[in-house]
Simulated scan of single mutants.
Amino acid sequence: MIPFNNSPVVGNELDYISEAIASRALSGDGPFSKKCEVLLEQLTGCKKALLTPSCTAALEMAAILIDLKVGDEVIMPSYTFVSTANAFALRGAKIIFVDVDAATMNIDPECIKAAINSKTKAIVPVHYAGVACDMDSIMALAEEHNLYVVEDAAQAIDSFYNGKPLGTIGHFGTFSFHETKNITSGGEGGALLINDSKMLSRAEIIREKGTNRSQFFRGSVDKYSWVDIGSSYLPSEIQAAYLYGQLLKLSEINNDRRNSWNVYASKLDDLAVKGLITLPNISDFATNNGHMFYLKCESLAVRTALISHLRADGIMAVFHYVPLHSAPAGLEFGEFYGADVITTAHSERLVRLPLFYGITPDQLSKIINSVRGYYKQEHISELY
């Protein structure tokens, strides 16, 4: 079976993990954490990067930092992972889901504009598949209405919007280092990017369980105490050591993934020309970090049949998010504003093909030939 995902391993991780173990200092915010944060700051140009146990934790920190209150509203796409909404619902905010753009599956700025009211506190654009949202339009709306922007860049490390690294355009950005992402810190992990230096001091406090411990170790205060709300948002040094090895190889990993992405796109393009499938779209203002390759079938029935066909050929392909506004918790903690023209209809058509660092040419050929073989079947017309 060709797996949908293989967690990336570049070969240097054990050396750095062994170094961390030998130091006998394995709790968070140690030497490897700081090395990773420096690399992320150099990569993105953000004011400060803080490692977290997950992208979920980074989003939760952002929700605290913008001082969300019960009754505040936060606008985001419904087509996203549950963590995007959970982080803000935990602070008592009402989640306002809006529609996405059909070409990119990213949040539609016109739908954001229509949903803004006096209760709106923040916008959370999600850079789906590592491809940028229309950030100029989103930031203009945020400035006009004095709103925070938290970029959910979970899939978007080393991807850009008009030359700007994703995660650095809004007030905050968040990365994921889960095993399904381009790079990982050993299965779980994340980072919060802070783009407003005024937020840095409080971010350190929130991350250290609400204490000013970081200031104490820098000698800024003579003792540390509980000074704010917070939680334990520190990954271990073993996680950071694993991530450090991967960050050093980020370009190699992403180049490999982009090459595979390009093979898919070129070998399946004729099916798109015939109108049998729709391929991913990379906007002129965006770059592609090779995070995900998906195609859209003509209908839910075709998607179901295609996934079954691929699995019969020993290939694990999957669909993606079920829109949050249709989930029980989505109905309880939020609502969909406007018409759901694209979100549900297009999410039901989307199939993700296997894509991971080190996928072989033979594996790619098998997957492509299986997809093409499915569309050669005589009975395919019965599903339309």
Score class of each variant (00 low, 15 high):
Val9Phe: 10
Val10Ser: 11
Glu13Leu: 01
Tyr16Gly: 02
Ile21Asp: 03
Arg24Glu: 14
Ser27His: 05
Gly30Ser: 03
Lys35Trp: 01
Leu43Pro: 09
Gly45Ala: 07
Ser54Cys: 09
Ala58Trp: 07
Leu65Val: 02
Asp67His: 13
Lys69Tyr: 03
Asp72Ser: 10
Met76Phe: 04
Asn86Met: 12
Ile96Gln: 11
Ile107Val: 15
Ala115Pro: 04
Ala115Thr: 05
Asn117Cys: 14
Ile123Trp: 00
Val126Glu: 06
Tyr128Val: 15
Glu144Val: 12
Ser159Pro: 00
Gly163Phe: 01
Pro165Ala: 13
Ile169Val: 13
His171Cys: 08
His178Gly: 11
Lys181His: 11
Gly189Leu: 00
Leu193Gly: 12
Asn195His: 06
Glu208Asn: 15
Ser214Val: 15
Gln215Pro: 03
Phe217Cys: 02
Trp226Ala: 11
Val227Gln: 04
Pro235Val: 03
Gly275Leu: 07
Ile277Ala: 07
Thr278Trp: 04
Met292Arg: 07
Glu298Phe: 06
Ile307Thr: 08
Leu310Arg: 04
Pro323Glu: 01
Leu324Ser: 03
His325Arg: 00
Tyr337Pro: 02
Thr343Asp: 13
Arg352His: 14
Gly358Cys: 02
Gln363Asn: 12
Ile368Arg: 00
Ile368Asp: 10
Ile368Gln: 05
Lys376Val: 07
Tyr384His: 12
